[in-house]
Simulated scan of single mutants.
Amino acid sequence: MTDTLTRPPFDPELDAALTLMGGFPAVTAEMIPAMRSQPMGPGQDPQELLRERGFVSRDVTIAGYKGDDIVVSVIQKGDRTGTGPGIYHTHGGGMIIGDRWGGVSTVLDAAERTNGVIVTVEYRLAPEYPDPYLVEDCYAGLVWTGEHLEELGIDPTRLIIAGASAGGGLAAGTALLARDRQGPALAAQLLMCPMIDDRDATTSARQIDGVGVWDRPTNVVGWTALLGDRRGTDDVSIYAAPSRATDLSGLPPAYIDCGSAEVFRDEDVAYATRLWEAGVQAELHVWAGGFHGFEAFAPHAAVSQAAVAARDSWLSRVLGA
């Protein structure tokens, strides 16, 4: 019998949007191939959006984990000149779906305001490529970015990492790798509803079971694809599941947000708390009534607009807009 608890209510506007969308069934491993053939989330095609807003992109093939070829895309305004900040982006998708274009739209405004450059990485996906492929591919992309700052027109003091959901977890893991390997210096880390704990033991994980977006059984599928039989054991690295890190000192300032009614709430709050305990600057927002990824699924809801505004305010402060 599943040990579930009463969850906090969804925000009324979000609840209505969720009802209109018809709900989200739990993901199984057998569903992964079909999910990859569909758009990952709502909204406009990312590359069409880039064109409409005057951004251009170019693909670069680089060496990923074990020297295998992976691709990063460099995105900037078509008329960009000079130097500005860099945003290194790791996409979401539960470790199992998605591509480097997913979620880029969340940082376009910041790049435009600040004359910035976005570098987004096509890391390989589980289960075909289990841990550590994903985080090592992400780290390889960050190293490439750090080695090409001058060519990219990136101010070395304003390079940040950003990701949502699984991408948030990979961003946190990549930041830990950069610290421990003395890699590229990061000015900040933007961790949007990050997926950072494989143990599935929090209250919020037990509350979000059979309801909302990315529920507890789905989360288990994602982590199992990444870690296999190691999920939930002591044989899991801090770079795969950053919640397991015992030393968070020396990390860059963080922005962490999540909804009050999503699986990742408690692990994200705990991570922010432990960053503070380690003397790291962190800003935490838990949006009342928010399900996972609510601002993307219901962008016109008041709470969604507040969440985006808070995130953009932090980005402006960090990037010097």
Score class of each variant (00 low, 15 high):
residue 231 R to T: 04
residue 1 M to N: 14
residue 117 V to T: 15
residue 261 A to V: 12
residue 18 L to A: 09
residue 61 T to V: 13
residue 128 E to S: 05
residue 140 A to V: 00
residue 41 G to T: 14
residue 231 R to N: 01
residue 150 E to L: 10
residue 212 G to V: 04
residue 208 I to M: 15
residue 71 V to S: 04
residue 205 A to S: 13
residue 180 D to T: 07
residue 309 A to N: 15
residue 82 G to W: 05
residue 141 G to Y: 08
residue 41 G to E: 14
residue 133 Y to F: 10
residue 118 I to L: 08
residue 128 E to F: 04
residue 7 R to A: 15
residue 307 A to F: 08
residue 132 P to R: 08
residue 192 M to T: 11
residue 221 V to L: 07
residue 95 M to I: 04
residue 202 T to Y: 09
residue 162 A to C: 13
residue 174 T to F: 08
residue 263 V to G: 02
residue 233 T to Y: 02
residue 72 V to Q: 10
residue 81 T to L: 00
residue 140 A to P: 01
residue 67 G to P: 02
residue 80 R to Y: 00
residue 55 F to W: 01
residue 49 L to I: 00
residue 80 R to W: 01
residue 168 G to F: 05
residue 312 D to Q: 15
residue 291 F to C: 01
residue 249 S to A: 15
residue 145 T to Y: 03
residue 41 G to Q: 13
residue 306 A to I: 11
residue 58 R to F: 10
residue 235 D to G: 08
residue 282 A to S: 12
residue 118 I to V: 15
residue 10 F to D: 09
residue 91 H to R: 06
residue 259 G to C: 05
residue 184 P to Q: 05
residue 12 P to S: 09
residue 240 A to H: 11
residue 115 N to E: 09
residue 221 V to Y: 11
residue 282 A to P: 06
residue 270 A to H: 12
residue 147 E to L: 14
residue 190 L to Q: 11
residue 4 T to M: 08
residue 66 K to R: 14
residue 215 D to H: 07
residue 79 D to S: 13
residue 161 I to E: 04
residue 276 W to D: 10
residue 287 W to F: 14
residue 292 H to L: 01
residue 75 I to R: 03
residue 252 P to I: 10
residue 207 Q to L: 06
residue 104 V to F: 01
residue 226 L to F: 08
residue 308 V to W: 12
residue 43 G to W: 10
residue 60 V to P: 01
residue 127 P to K: 09
residue 200 D to I: 11
residue 99 D to V: 02
residue 154 I to M: 07
residue 168 G to A: 02
residue 133 Y to R: 14
residue 263 V to F: 09
residue 255 Y to T: 12
residue 22 G to V: 00
residue 80 R to V: 02
residue 211 V to F: 12
residue 302 A to E: 15
residue 112 E to K: 09
residue 237 S to P: 06
residue 43 G to D: 10
residue 87 I to V: 15
residue 227 L to T: 11
residue 256 I to C: 04
residue 256 I to N: 03
residue 56 V to M: 06
residue 220 V to E: 12
residue 90 T to D: 03
residue 168 G to P: 10
residue 151 E to D: 12
residue 155 D to T: 12
residue 159 L to E: 02
residue 2 T to R: 15
residue 58 R to Y: 10
residue 1 M to E: 12
residue 43 G to S: 11
residue 223 W to N: 09
residue 234 D to H: 11
residue 113 R to F: 05
residue 153 G to P: 04
residue 180 D to H: 01
residue 73 S to D: 06
residue 151 E to C: 07
residue 145 T to D: 07
residue 11 D to I: 07
residue 98 G to C: 13
residue 76 Q to F: 02
residue 286 V to N: 09
residue 120 T to K: 02
residue 38 Q to D: 13
residue 133 Y to C: 11
residue 205 A to M: 13
residue 96 I to Y: 11
residue 32 I to A: 05
residue 17 A to F: 12
residue 17 A to R: 14
residue 1 M to T: 14
residue 64 G to R: 12
residue 136 E to A: 05
residue 204 S to Y: 10
residue 273 T to R: 15
residue 231 R to I: 03
residue 311 R to A: 03
residue 4 T to G: 03
residue 161 I to K: 08
residue 174 T to K: 06
residue 163 G to A: 10
residue 300 H to L: 11
